[in-house]
Design a protein around this nucleic acid. Structure first.
Lengths: 159, 159
DNA sequence: TATTGTTATACTCTATAACTATA
DNA sequence: TATAGTTATAGAGTATAACAATA
């Protein structure tokens, strides 16, 4: 039986996407807020999120961020300056530097990761049953193998 | 009675937000594609979307885009170069220039607007009833007076 | 010789300030 | 004097290319 929230007026349909966009904008602004407080930009956030899964070689970071290795140098420089990550020379190959999060970096990375993966506060306006319904509808729209992982990757197009 | 799509497994809940993000990323990339094909950047898309509601003075464009008037000069220069908009001197105040879309500009602006307001193709994986349910859930999460209108506004934070 | 990372350089995007024309 | 728009200049972000160190 349809609950109050599932009785849609026709105008709801028209605004469906605008409402979803609003959730994104809110999450994006929250993410930007976290980054600005640490004087970082979106690429740093992406890097922090990656590094939460374990230390990485700069070469591999460049690959996953789809940018040149020279830019990774700048990104890691900045992360070191603000004390969120550090370079560790590889004991087996002295060319290689492994980038690892500091304790402070772990904390910020966890915040970033949560913004990328946890539903925004507006989810609390739904009952548990409604959340399950929403999850199921989204699962039908976006199969697991189509889930993207670069929501906040920058930059926008260069012409 | 719950349809097939509304029976959520617990892991669906975990991925709810990642799935929604994927829809956003897809729409963003579609928008970027439209813009790149016309050698434009996100601010141009935002300007086109605004101009679809009628011609505007550059001063007002700067206000709504939260940027300096001098940058609007550059944006409008570019839109004129690619033939999507044109400056029209105001007959009543010779300082003022009204910016209007050309026919080609109307077409691109309509595309942009649609990307901003129409659900992405994945919506077709839902039945009509499911779409209404989704719309109702989103309406409960995002009341009409909280709907944001600057989904693709750039830039990201500068530190 | 090939690979990892850095430095040097240049280009794009956007902001700030000085300027011109009109009101 | 105040306002609309432009031009000049500068800063941040990112890419490309040349380089040094190590394999």
């Amino acid at each position: 039986m349809a609950s109050e929230a599932t009785e849609a007026r026709s105008s709801d349909d028209d605004l469906l996407w605008s409402r979803m966009m609003t959730l994104f904008v809110t999450a994006r602004d929250q993410m930007f807020g976290i980054l600005v407080r640490h004087e970082l930009t979106p690429p740093h956030g992406f890097a922090l999120s990656m590094l939460q899964d374990g230390q990485m070689r700069m070469r591999d970071m460049a690959e996953r961020m789809s940018c040149d290795a020279s830019y990774i140098t700048a990104v890691v420089d900045r992360l070191e300056e603000v004390g969120l990550a550090e370079r560790r020379s590889s004991p087996t190959d002295r060319r290689v530097k492994e980038i690892a999060l500091t304790d402070a970096g772990e904390r910020v990375a966890a915040l970033v990761r949560r913004t990328l993966t946890a539903p925004p506060p507006a989810i609390e306006r739904l009952t548990t049953a409604e959340r399950r319904t929403l999850a199921a509808l989204l699962a039908k729209m976006v199969p697991e193998d189509e889930i993207a992982d670069d929501a906040f990757r920058i930059p926008p197009p260069r012409v």
